[in-house]
Lab assay of single mutants.
Amino acid sequence: SIVTKIISIVQERQNMDDGAPVKTRDIADAAGLSIYQVRLYLEQLHDVGVLEKVNAGKGVPGLWRLL
């Protein structure tokens, strides 16, 4: 499923980069989806406690990390 793919992308990127959070844009590119589509999935995963959003604010790139 797309959700499983997104989780594995975040996991893979974090492992490659010493646990650093992953940008929404990088996840979207790797999943082959638009940034808006991916954001909806990321928000859902956040709501159920799978991911945390590391930063927030208007015009700030979203950074995500697995919990």
Rank of each mutant, 00 (worst) to 15 (best):
G59E: 06
I6F: 01
Q11H: 11
G62W: 10
R13V: 05
V3I: 14
D17W: 14
E52Y: 04
V38A: 14
L67Q: 09
T24L: 03
G49Y: 03
P21W: 15
H46L: 11
E52S: 06
T24D: 12
A30V: 04
L45E: 00
R39Y: 11
E52P: 02
N55I: 07
Y41F: 09
D29G: 07
E43W: 10
Q14I: 04
P21V: 06
S1Y: 09
A20Y: 10
M16T: 07
S8I: 09
Q11P: 00
I35R: 04
E43D: 08
A56Q: 10
L67E: 05
S34V: 09
L45G: 15
I9R: 01
K5W: 09
I2E: 03
Y36A: 13
T4W: 14
Y41L: 10
M16W: 07
D47R: 15
I7K: 04
L42Q: 00
D26Y: 10
L67W: 09
D18L: 11
W64P: 15
L33M: 12
S34D: 09
Q14P: 02
G49C: 05
N55L: 07
D17K: 13
L40D: 06
V50G: 00
N55A: 10
N55F: 12
K53T: 04
D17R: 14
G49E: 02
K58L: 10
I6V: 03
T4H: 13
N15W: 11
K5E: 05
V38T: 14
G62V: 15
R39C: 13
Y41A: 05
S8M: 13
G57S: 07
K58H: 11
G32H: 06
Y41C: 07
H46D: 02
I27N: 00
R39Q: 12
R25L: 06
L66A: 04
E12R: 10
A30H: 05
D47K: 15
I9M: 03
N15Y: 10
P61R: 10
I7S: 01
I7D: 00
G49M: 02
Q37K: 10
A30Q: 07
L42N: 00
T24G: 03
E43R: 06
S34N: 09
D17H: 15
V54A: 04
K23H: 10
Q11F: 10
A31Y: 02
S34A: 07
Q44C: 15
L45K: 02
L42Y: 01
N15I: 12
A28K: 02
D17I: 08
G49F: 03
V10K: 00
L66Q: 02
I7F: 05
P21E: 02
G32A: 06
Q11N: 08
Q14M: 14
D47N: 13
Q44S: 10
N15E: 12
A31K: 01
Q11R: 14
K58A: 12
Q44W: 15
V22C: 05
R65A: 08
A31S: 08
R13D: 00
R13M: 11
L40G: 08
N55E: 08
Q11E: 09
E12K: 10
L45D: 00
D47Y: 12
D26E: 07
K58D: 13
N55G: 10
D17C: 15
I27D: 02
V50A: 04
R65L: 11
Q44D: 08
M16F: 08
R13Q: 07
L63G: 15
Q37C: 13
I7M: 07
A20G: 11
P61A: 14
E12V: 08
L67M: 11
P61I: 10
I2H: 05
G59C: 08
V48T: 09
T24K: 02
